[in-house]
Amino acid sequence: MKIIALLLFILVNFSYGYTYNKLLLKAQASIFPKIIMLDKKIHDKLIDGEIVYTIVYEKNDYYTALEIGEFMESNYRQNKSKYSYKINLVEFSNFSDETQTTAVYVLNSNKYIKKIAQSATRKGIISFAYDMNNLKQGILFSLMLEKSTVLYLNKENLNTKGIDFVDSLYQIVNFVEKSGS
């Protein structure tokens, strides 16, 4: 009976997608768009004169992606910026090098993270991940809530072509190497 209950629990969790920490999602959705603005070459990444922030998700995580997008849009309306802002939601399986985006934020996936990271590196766009472990796959940034808010930067992808951050950003990040150190 215990085995059946455990299998049922696992199946229910799998069918509804990954379980996300709502506080962490909101923290990331508040901070990641501000990091985009710290790229000295942001003007080269604009799509039709605006910042296009793409949230990439698994099919089961659509409502989480939608919630994050709505939260970001409401936050962005309150900020004064010289660039207009657009949020796109794209399923992992539909993301490609042809996807026009200024920056990409990936939710969790078992098989697509490396593909997204490689595409972001080739295109010279900023990539963010919900899960810090995805930095090992080549994603550039992640943010965690520990004793304080900690912003992590993938040191190996720091010199991605087309990305050049203001120097003050490097003073507040914790660098992570692909090996996990």
Rank of each mutant, 00 (worst) to 15 (best):
I4P: 01
L6T: 10
L7F: 08
L8R: 06
F9V: 14
F9M: 15
V12L: 12
N13Y: 09
F14M: 13
S15R: 11
Y18K: 05
T19M: 12
L23Q: 14
A27Y: 10
Q28C: 04
K34Q: 14
K34I: 14
D39I: 09
K40W: 07
K41G: 06
H43I: 15
D44R: 13
D44F: 11
L46M: 08
L46P: 02
G49S: 06
I51H: 02
I51W: 01
I51D: 05
V52S: 05
T54R: 01
V56M: 00
K59W: 05
D61F: 03
T64Q: 02
L66M: 12
N75G: 12
Q78H: 07
N79L: 10
S84F: 05
K86H: 11
N88T: 12
L89D: 03
S96I: 00
D97Y: 09
T99G: 08
V104P: 03
V106R: 04
N108T: 11
Y112W: 08
R122Q: 13
G124N: 04
I125K: 02
F128Y: 10
F128A: 03
D131G: 13
N133Q: 15
L135P: 01
K136A: 10
G138V: 01
G138C: 02
L140S: 02
L145M: 14
E146V: 13
T149I: 15
T149Y: 12
V150M: 05
L151I: 14
L153S: 00
N154I: 02
N154L: 05
N157K: 14
L158K: 06
L158I: 04
N159P: 04
V166F: 10
D167A: 09
L169Y: 00
I172K: 04
N174G: 10
F175D: 11
G180H: 05
